[in-house]
Computed example of a mutant assay.
Amino acid sequence: MEARIYKPARSAMQSGRGNTKDWVLEFVNPAARRRTDPLMGWTGIDDMSGQVRLTFETREQAIAYAEREGLKFTVEEARERKRLVKSYSENFSASRKQPWTH
């Protein structure tokens, strides 16, 4: 069984950093078959392990768990978010890169 370890990014519906502090271990099965229900049209999958998400406080705890259980895993490093610090007064600064057009 394969697993993926990553630190989730915040969703577009969040303004804060909720649910982004923990590391997540998800099971990945590329051989799982998807099928469409003929009556309702919903998509189903043969493998239910794709619904399991384990959370860990640190990356090392997630790796230790995967090694202890004998899982093949890949670790996706967390990217630091880039912050643009701006204020309203910068719109009127003398060192503005683009001049006002009106």
Rank of each mutant, 00 (worst) to 15 (best):
D37L: 05
Q14I: 01
F92C: 01
F73D: 03
W100F: 13
T36Q: 14
R33Q: 14
A3F: 00
G16N: 14
E2P: 04
T58N: 08
G16W: 05
S15T: 14
T20P: 07
R4W: 08
A3S: 04
G44L: 15
S11W: 09
K86V: 13
Y65V: 04
G41R: 01
R59G: 05
G18R: 12
G50W: 05
R59P: 00
L71D: 05
A94R: 10
S89W: 11
E76W: 03
G44V: 08
V52W: 12
S93L: 02
E77K: 10
I45T: 06
R53A: 15
R33H: 09
W100G: 06
G44W: 11
M48C: 04
E69K: 04
E90I: 02
R59H: 06
V75Q: 08
E67S: 12
V28K: 03
I45C: 14
M1L: 11
G50T: 06
L54T: 02
K97W: 02
R81T: 13
F56W: 14
A64Y: 00
R4T: 06
P38V: 07
T101Y: 10
T36W: 01
Q61P: 00
T101C: 08
E2F: 11
F92M: 07
H102E: 13
M48G: 04
A3P: 00
T36C: 09
F92I: 01
M40D: 10
A62W: 04
A62T: 05
F27T: 01
D37Q: 02
L54D: 05
R34A: 08
E67T: 06
A62Q: 12
G50F: 04
L25T: 02
V85G: 09
L71M: 06
F56Q: 11
Q51V: 03
R34M: 08
K97L: 10
R17Q: 11
F27L: 10
S93F: 01
R79D: 08
Q51C: 09
R33T: 12
G41L: 06
R83P: 00
F27V: 00
P8E: 12
I63L: 13
R79S: 07
K82Q: 14
